[in-house]
Design a protein around this nucleic acid. Sequence first.
DNA 1: CCCTGATTCGC
DNA 2: GCGAATCAGG
Length: 170
Amino acid sequence: MNWTDERVELLRKLWAEGLSASQIAAQLGGVSRNAVIGKVHRLKLSGRGRTTAAPARQKKTSSPSVSKPARSASPARSAAPTVGATALQVQFDAEPVARQHLRAVENVVVPISRRLDLTELTERTCKWPNGDPLSEDFHFCGNEAGESGPYCAYHARLAFQPASERRRLR
DNA sequence: CCCTGATTCGC
DNA sequence: GCGAATCAGG
């Protein structure tokens, strides 16, 4: 797969919306979550709302002689205390609570589905129903489903492991 | 064990 | 530039 303009744009959007790398990968289709993460880094938009910090990596040494981390002494942390005023301003507040009209019960986030009609589904398309079945808007997700199930990775998680998501989602 | 993102490095 | 392998954490 090639990172076209549209795909990059979609990546940025979904990432900004707080979707996880694997979820984004599932919607893009044809890429792994690592690919997404790697691309995110290259785009320099890694620091999002809340995730694991960046403790600095150091591994994968091809040289057979070098393999002694030895981080017992003081690493590189004796810098000036003038750091840290960056991550405080979060644009995190997209929860007006007022869910006014009928929002789908479990639609926390509706990924861009391909709006497939029932007749357009194949064995490899996600069969997650979207919208009101009685409405004309009803359609299926249609993203890459793979062999592990009838859904794409994203919907599979929603269906089978909702607790995992709620965990951090507070 | 499941997941998450972060980093490195060979390609 | 890309992404698999790996790491580190929840």
